[in-house]
Amino acid sequence: MDSKPQWMSDPEMCSYFNSLPPYVQENMMQSSMSFCSMQELRACAEKLQRAE
């Protein structure tokens, strides 16, 4: 069974996620967030990076 979130099957979203700092990636994966668009993914990543 593949444990990756469905949104990671999108090459653009996966590439962007992989470019994020490790602590942002970890927060996203641990919270099991789901993203329907690149815009949602970017907004979440930016929010997490501002909180650091």
Rank of each mutant, 00 (worst) to 15 (best):
M1P: 13
M1C: 05
M1I: 09
M1G: 11
M1F: 13
M1H: 15
M1S: 12
D2S: 14
D2W: 14
D2F: 12
S3F: 14
S3D: 09
S3W: 13
K4V: 09
K4P: 04
K4R: 15
K4Q: 11
P5E: 05
P5F: 08
P5R: 00
P5T: 03
P5I: 00
Q6S: 14
Q6H: 10
Q6A: 15
W7S: 04
W7L: 00
M8S: 07
M8N: 04
M8V: 02
S9H: 11
S9E: 06
S9G: 04
D10Q: 03
D10C: 02
D10R: 04
D10M: 02
P11T: 00
P11K: 06
P11Y: 04
P11R: 05
P11M: 00
E12F: 13
M13L: 07
M13I: 06
C14F: 09
S15Q: 13
S15C: 05
S15K: 15
S15L: 10
Y16F: 14
Y16C: 07
Y16I: 02
F17Y: 06
F17E: 07
F17L: 06
N18A: 11
N18P: 10
S19C: 10
L20D: 03
L20G: 02
L20N: 02
L20W: 05
L20P: 03
L20R: 02
P21Y: 07
P22L: 15
P22Q: 15
P22G: 12
P22I: 09
P22Y: 14
P22N: 13
Y23L: 09
Y23K: 06
Y23G: 01
Y23A: 08
E26F: 11
E26Y: 10
N27G: 09
N27W: 09
N27P: 06
M28K: 01
M28E: 02
M29Q: 12
Q30A: 11
S31Q: 05
S31I: 04
S32W: 13
S32M: 12
S32P: 01
S32V: 08
S32D: 15
S34A: 12
F35Q: 00
F35C: 01
F35A: 00
C36A: 14
S37F: 06
S37G: 05
S37Q: 06
S37R: 04
S37N: 00
S37K: 01
M38T: 03
M38L: 15
Q39G: 11
Q39L: 14
Q39A: 10
Q39F: 11
Q39N: 11
E40C: 05
E40I: 03
E40N: 03
E40K: 05
L41S: 01
R42F: 04
R42L: 03
R42I: 08
A43T: 11
C44W: 07
C44F: 00
C44R: 15
A45C: 04
A45G: 05
E46C: 04
E46I: 10
E46V: 12
E46N: 06
L48G: 01
L48M: 08
L48P: 00
L48S: 01
L48Y: 00
Q49K: 12
Q49W: 08
R50G: 02
R50S: 07
R50K: 13
R50F: 03
A51Y: 14
A51T: 09
A51E: 15
A51C: 07
E52M: 11
E52V: 10
